[in-house]
Amino acid sequence: MELRHLRYFAAVADTCHFGQAATQLHVAQPALSYAIRQLEAELDVTLFTRTTRQVALTPAGEYLQAEAARILAGVDDAVDGVRRIAAGRSGVIRLGLTGIAAFSHLPRIARVVKRELPDVDLQIQSDMLTPVQCDGLRALSIDLGVLRPPVVGDGIDMRLIDVEPMVLAVSVDHRLAVEPVVAVEDLRNEMFVMYDSQDSAVNDAAVRTCHRAGFVPQRAHRAPGTAVLLALVAAGMGVAVVPASVRALPLEGLVIRDLVDAGTVELALAWRSGQDNPVVDAVSEVIAQAFAAETASPRRTPNDTYVGEQL
């Protein structure tokens, strides 16, 4: 049984008129009548009773009408789904995110994908260091990564989506908590809380910021992640120079202050080089467009070449 025969049958069954069905299908009426006779012969049943004045469905025809409607609707849905996937409008994207980006950037990412690509299912994997994301992209365990440049290893392409200024995190009772804006020079004698990862792009940016002010930051404590780092700062164990997106994580006892002449740290969208998944292309494009205004400024200076990793 051909789909063409089912569509022809459905049109005649709906109109109970061969002439109207032929017009609707843009075929000649004799060709339509012949196709219906072929279908009846293949099924060895009579689907229509025909007189010179009337065409009516037989009981077998009534049953086939319901089944044909279900089958043809399923075929149309399958065709639409295939086309949407091929166009990048439907599918599953496994998205990896660096620590704080899950709080500061994921809401905007999820919102724009839901709005622009409602049939795309985002599966989130958070707290992934840049090297882990790069390995995941190469191993096909994630499709897209939101990470701190630079990428680690070969075979990864990326697109900048955000450049964040560095800010100061201090406890509410710290001497600098009352200042609306703080100069980096004022941190010369402070003890710092920093990430314990040797590949932290945030650490690198903080160290460069201090170097430009003429001193080396003194590390009092090392934290495995952003939540612990901010908790230590709130407890008065030291200060921290971190990306401005930490404001997405309000914490009792913690104060965030702008820093004069502080450096910046980047956030990028990354994918496997040579990937041919149209859904990856579509999602990366809508995410990049969502952050286009933010990436317009500020830009990093030539001295801000990153050699490390992320939160």
Rank of each mutant, 00 (worst) to 15 (best):
H26N: 13
A28N: 08
Q29P: 10
Q29H: 15
P30A: 04
L32S: 08
S33H: 12
Y34S: 11
R37W: 03
R37Y: 11
L39E: 04
A41R: 04
A41N: 14
E42L: 05
D44M: 08
D44A: 12
V45R: 15
L47N: 08
L47Q: 00
L47F: 12
T49F: 05
T49R: 02
T51R: 14
Q54H: 14
T58P: 00
P59I: 12
P59S: 11
Y63R: 02
L64G: 00
L64D: 00
Q65D: 13
A66H: 15
E67S: 11
A69I: 08
I71V: 13
L72P: 11
L72D: 06
G74F: 02
V75H: 14
V75W: 10
V75G: 10
D76F: 12
D76Q: 15
D76R: 15
V79T: 02
D80W: 04
D80S: 14
R84W: 02
A86N: 10
A86L: 10
A87N: 12
I93S: 03
R94V: 02
T98H: 00
G99Y: 04
A101N: 13
R108F: 10
A110D: 13
V112W: 12
V113F: 05
K114M: 12
R115N: 03
D119A: 15
D121H: 13
L122C: 14
L122Q: 05
L122G: 14
Q123C: 06
D127F: 01
M128K: 07
M128G: 06
M128I: 13
M128V: 01
P131A: 08
V132H: 04
V132L: 13
V132P: 01
C134K: 06
G136P: 00
L137N: 04
A139S: 11
L140C: 13
D143Q: 11
G145S: 01
V146H: 03
V146G: 10
L147V: 05
G153A: 06
G155K: 08
G155H: 01
I156N: 00
R159H: 12
